[in-house]
């Protein structure tokens, strides 16, 4: 499966997940650096209904449509980087697993006016061991809290990088992605040396 990665003529797809609460600027971030207008695709999820308003003997299923926003960046060396925004609403957290599988890492975007919206993302990536960083979106240049304050409030572990960014600015998105991959590389090197 992974052998294609070493074939020089063919492109290799890689991905980074952009996570965070609803309305925190994930699609803005993707759009700031994507070479295409961010696209939306839908997945239909069928689940056994867990609602209390169903009669158990009907064995009903519910179908939910989850929308995923994503963008694309062609890099040199035949690499194509896809950026996936996670669905923000809590009820779609089960999609995070699929989005994160095989990801280089994740950017957790934070709006300091609604810190609580980011707890779930920080927890999730810490738990599944995906390298991540926390990017504090500075809406209109606002920096009401220091990065240390945000780290403490979100209980972000010491090794996780943090940075400010303006999600509308391409250079900021680029810097954040570079910082994330540096972190992912350092993490990978550590585990290589440990084995």
């Amino acid at each position: 499966m992974g052998s294609e990665a070493s074939n020089p003529g063919r492109p290799t797809p890689v991905k980074i997940v952009i996570a965070g609460g609803f309305g925190v600027g994930k699609t803005t971030f993707v759009g700031a650096i994507s070479e295409i207008e961010p696209l939306t695709s839908e997945a239909i999820i069928t689940q056994a209904s867990a609602g209390v308003d169903h009669l158990p003997e009907l064995n009903t299923k519910t179908t939910t449509t989850v929308a995923m926003d994503f963008g694309r960046i062609s890099l040199k060396n035949h690499l194509i980087l896809y950026l996936f925004g996670t669905p923000g609403q809590d009820r779609f957290h089960f999609m995070w697993h699929e989005l994160s599988k095989g990801a280089i890492g994740a950017v957790v975007l934070v709006d300091t006016r609604r810190l609580e919206a980011c707890f779930a993302a920080v927890d999730f990536f810490e738990r599944i061991g995906t390298p991540f960083l926390v990017a504090v979106n500075t809406f209109d240049g606002e920096r009401p809290y220091s990065l240390d304050q945000v780290r403490e409030a979100l209980a972000v572990p010491a090794g996780v990088p943090m940075a400010y960014c303006d999600a509308r600015r391409r250079v900021d998105a680029q810097a954040i992605l570079a910082k994330l991959v540096e972190h992912a590389l350092a993490t990978a090197l550590e585990s290589v040396h440990a084995t």
Binding site: M1, G2, S3, A5, S6, T12, V14, I33, I73, L75, K76, N77, L79, L81, I104, Q174, L177, A178, V181, E182, A184, L185, A188, L189, S191, V192, T195
Partner: peptide
């Protein structure tokens, strides 16, 4: 599938690619 050497090599290329955008 990928061994550590290949994976870190890939990450270096990705990093290089992002920096040269």
């Amino acid at each position: 599938t990928l061994d550590g050497y290949m994976y870190t090599n890939l990450l270096r290329k990705v990093l290089d690619g992002i920096r040269s955008l």
